[in-house]
């Protein structure tokens, strides 16, 4: 068939003679191609630039005689102005707020996803989805004030003003959970909807109820997608800045020693104020530090740490998707 179509083209004769079949030079096309390549390159170059600056400035920091790499990971106090460089208090606050956020976002997000993909009527879906998207569109600074002026007072009334600080990590964590909820929900829903219909029909055919189908067939089949969604959400929570900057506090949760930190398990108390890595970077860079001070280069070391964490998480999520994906 193909031959029949192409053949006449090749042999087509015109008044001038045979048609030239070589690719026509199209300068316009080349310009467009070049431009598109440039656009792609910009994003790559930006990434390379950021990574380069991070490493360069962080190197300046770690080379400083006042800084020791061991203390950076083992000390329990971060206060650059007096030469205390232990990343732990910042890391701790980041982990606490992210974990609290995930405790909110995971169960709720997956429940929403199951409802949307397995239960919701088209009408309910058409209401719930846009609402979720609105939630995703709220600026994070609004979430920050929501945490400080709505969630915090509720926590303080419920648990007690002496226990819960005005600026506290629990409130910031809860709101981070709400913030990443749409992300978890929509990514999980994508994973669940990707499970072929035949699997569900087979389950129904064997007499499974809707709930059994959802929990025992669809969710396990979509596990790799769900796992990837969780990890992307964690890295989003770790990187969240505005909420913690406003609601969590503006001083690192310093301890004089590890003994102090573990006394009454004080370090796990989320109702205290603390400063996350991102929050600290924002506060310090918002001040008027001079560029050559160690306080200034220290924020690059924190940023590098943050970058390593999120990069690791993203790599893990890709590995999960690749390794545990089930093909149907």
């Amino acid at each position: 068939m193909q031959g029949e179509i192409t053949k006449p083209l090749i042999t087509t004769q015109t008044a001038e003679g045979e048609i030239d079949l070589r690719a026509k030079k199209r300068p316009g096309e080349m310009i467009v191609q070049g431009f598109l390549f440039f656009c792609g390159a910009v994003s790559i170059l930006t990434t390379v630039g950021i990574v380069f600056v991070l490493f360069e400035e962080a190197l300046v920091f770690f080379r400083d005689p006042a800084v020791s790499l061991v203390e950076f990971f083992t000390k329990t106090m971060w206060q650059p102005k007096i030469g205390a460089f232990g990343i732990f208090p910042l890391l701790l606050a980041t982990l606490l707020t992210s974990i609290i956020g995930m405790m909110v976002a995971l169960p709720l997000g997956v429940a929403i996803a199951i409802y949307l993909s397995e239960y919701a009527t088209p009408r309910n879906r058409s209401i719930l989805k846009p609402v979720l998207e609105i939630l995703a569109g709220v600026p994070t600074v609004v979430y920050g004030f929501f945490a400080l002026s709505f969630v915090t007072p509720i926590l303080r009334d419920a648990i007690g003003k002496d226990t819960v600080d005005l600026f506290n990590m629990a409130s910031a964590g809860l709101v981070i959970g709400i913030l990443i909820l749409p992300l978890v929900a929509s990514m999980s829903e994508d994973a669940l909807s990707a499970v072929p219909r035949s699997l569900r029909e087979a389950a129904y055919g064997l007499g499974a109820t809707r709930l059994e189908t959802a929990l025992k067939i669809v969710v396990p089949a979509a596990l790799s997608g769900l796992g990837a969604a969780f990890i992307v959400a964690i890295s989003r929570a770790v990187g969240e800045t505005m909420v913690v900057a406003i609601a969590a506090g503006s001083g690192p949760r310093n301890f004089a020693s590890w003994g102090d930190a573990f006394k009454n398990l004080a370090l796990f108390n989320p109702f205290k104020s603390g400063e996350t890595m991102t929050g600290h970077i924002v506060r310090i860079s918002g001040g008027d530090l001079s560029y050559n001070s160690i306080d200034y280069t220290s924020i690059f070391a924190i940023a590098l740490m943050l970058f390593v964490i999120t990069l690791t998480l993203n790599i893990i999520s890709q590995q999960i998707v690749r390794r545990y994906r089930m093909r149907y």
Partner: peptide, 9 residues
Amino acid sequence: LGAANLQLS
């Protein structure tokens, strides 16, 4: 700066 429960803003 070494004090606990310190908020700087």
